[in-house]
Design a protein around this nucleic acid. Structure first.
Lengths: 294, 294
DNA sequence: CCCAGTTACGGGGCTCGTAAAAATA
DNA sequence: TATTTTTACGAGCCCCGTAACTGGG
């Protein structure tokens, strides 16, 4: 019995809660699904599904193993995808979310001009690191400590405001007149919400007299923008992001926070593809002024 | 053609650089290996191996895909292992390295007394997190921020010394009499070598007048102990580790560094296994004084 | 010419789809 | 009883091992 066929059948049945529906999904007949699942169960030494004629449910073993089986199918998909992309000469690059798509499109165009199909995919910080490690991409722009960075992007605070003077953290202090409801929050985007940055930020905030709850992670750009467009909250972001979102951006010297990125490559032969011109495009997309000198 | 059979054959040939040797390893005949590799190559759309009658070498595609194929086999192994351990009622726990093995043995014994076979495996900080996420263990003692921690272990500095007075960082300042060669180094073990801790430590060290190069990561406990036993270097470690290694341990108030751990569980039904008694054993193994109150 | 990998070939096992049986609400 | 899964069964395919073939050093 083919383990992978069994795995596909099992996952399909678990998803649809039905052998018949799974058979339709898998383009085969229902007895085949039944036998494949039975074969997988035999190999794993126990029932994965509890079948009544009315409903199908996962057993304890099935619950425990479902994600392992999905991981196996993920590894298979990853292998086949890698082979296909190698065949097409495609290089898969993982980049941060919430940056200017046009910049990434420009990067893709320049790579195509150099004869390479660069497949750019946006992903969150954690997922980018994980997926690159799992081999689902050939290259990734990953957060690193400043010393190892290829690009360093300064962060500031952005809001819709008519303020002209420089901004300092103290200006976000809650005032009695406004009341606790109207306190300005300092919103950290998912891309920056690492423990290290958050703790550093909370420390600076506390030193400037801000309350602990004023600094918090924003679940999405949309929710963050809601507060910033209303003139209530301040978003921690780059100058380019603020500009794209039509916000005023202020450097805050007390913060001195940055995003530090490095281009990580799976194989060393990607070095020739990512030449200085492409790296400048990446810098532009990230909002970095210049490339770091290693 | 079975993808996994092909994968096993390919990896075996790549390892042994020979179809015949791979056939012996895989307990089958050489033509079978040949066909399985050919089948995998057909599925992936290109040659993985370059065969001369004298030598076998990886092609570019083979090089690019080898680790993906190994990942696939790893996922299969992981699935089968998880099924087997579930069947035996085994719970697999990943714990930090370089702690007292006897403490972990005591934990294992207590779990066995409660009717559970607890399979304890030591692994480095990064690998522990990665392997737990990949589902290669049911539970893991992972580093987290202090606020979420189940256990917090204070760190101090240890060395062979006859010093009786309290230690301060300034005592490690290089003196002209000793010369640059004889400067005391502050060694950080792999378990603590996170960017966050290292940067905090370097900052404290600089504030006490230490040179930047005096703080560095130690590749292994053995190499760290060589310096500490000679009375030259100071190891950053817990009181229990210092005691096991026959070193004198000093709390350094200027540092206030800790290891903060949390027991992460794959399935919520592990909560009843890891009762307060087992958690106390884990605390003892980690060198924590007491369990944190969440 | 030798050695290692590939191809040929007959046998057997395994999986397939159709159809009938079984099981449960 | 009705619906869904399992089992039965013949057909065909695919994989296996043995043995002959091929090709490079």
């Amino acid at each position: 019995m083919d383990l992978i066929s069994g795995a596909r059948a099992f996952v399909a049945v678990a998803r649809r809660q039905s052998f018949s529906a799974a058979a339709r999904d898998e383009q085969t007949t229902q007895p085949v699904i039944s036998r494949r699942v039975a074969g997988l169960e035999a190999q794993l030494g126990g029932a994965l599904l509890e079948r009544n004629t009315r409903q199908v449910r996962l057993t304890a073993l099935g619950t425990a193993l479902l994600e392992h089986v999905q991981a196996l199918l993920g590894a298979e998909r990853s292998l086949v995808d890698a082979a296909a992309s190698h065949h097409r000469g495609t290089v898969r690059l993982l980049v941060p979310r919430d940056l200017d798509p046009a910049r990434w499109a420009a990067l893709r165009l320049r790579a195509r001009g150099a004869g390479t199909d660069l497949d750019i995919e946006e992903a969150g910080r954690e997922l980018r690191t994980l997926r690159f490690r799992l081999g689902e991409a050939d290259a990734a722009v990953l957060p690193v400590e400043t010393a190892r960075a290829d690009w360093v992007v300064p962060l500031g605070l952005a809001q819709v405001t008519d303020r002209r003077r420089p901004l300092s953290l103290g200006a976000l202090r809650p005032t009695r007149a406004l009341g606790p409801k109207a306190a300005s929050n300092l919103l950290v985007l998912a891309e920056d919400a690492s423990g290290q940055l958050l703790s550093a930020l909370r420390e600076s905030a506390a030193a400037s007299g801000l309350a602990a709850h004023q600094v918090h992670e924003s679940p999405s750009v949309v929710s963050a923008l809601a507060g910033a467009l209303a003139g209530d909250d301040w978003i921690l972001c780059t100058r380019e992001q603020a500009s794209a979102w039509r916000l005023q951006w202020f450097e805050v010297p007390e913060l001195a926070l940055t995003r530090a990125y490095r281009l990580e490559l799976r194989t060393p032969d990607g070095r020739q593809l990512f030449n200085p011109a492409l790296r400048r495009d990446i810098a532009a997309a990230l909002g970095a002024n210049r490339e770091e000198q290693p």
